[in-house]
Amino acid sequence: MVLITLVSSDEQNFPVERELLKQSGTIETLIVNMNLDDEDTDAAAMPIPLPNVKGDVLEKVIQWMEHHKGDPVKEGDNEDNNAEIVVPQWDDDFFKPAMYGSKHLELTVAASYLDIKNLLTLSCKAISNTFKGKTGPQIREEWGVPNEFTPEEEEAIRKENEWSE
């Protein structure tokens, strides 16, 4: 089994099975460019630095990739019908504990940076699901967003949207 080492921004090393890394467009490109797939190259001796991903987040990303090993990897632009995306139960349980903190958002940013399309789609969908059935003030409270609107401004926006059910 070929292992490739990923190095996080806080200089933690993670040896990862080569096969898993096919899910990441960014790392896959680096592996090709660095000839790490060549038999003559000592892949373990050439760690891949990921300066934009912290160790704890990279750990979660690897955990997610391990679970999704063998899943088909999306290519090109995301053409999913947004309304039809369903977050599987395992992923939902995986995202939930960190959902309203910074960690889930860091995981989403990492998925974007590493170009892991399935993780990005599911992570974004999981975030968007947290807004379902919530009022504006509830969303504000849960995500810690400061209220910038005066009551009058808020009322004016509500009036514009009064067709909503």
């Binding site: 995301n78 807004f131 969303i139 609107f149 949207n161």
Partner: peptide
């Protein structure tokens, strides 16, 4: 944008009063 594109108009109504 990626997150908001996965919502409905009704969800966006509520989000529109969260912040500018």
């Amino acid at each position: 944008r990626e997150i908001f594109n996965k919502l409905t108009h009704t969800d966006l109504d509520e989000l529109s009063i969260v912040s500018r």
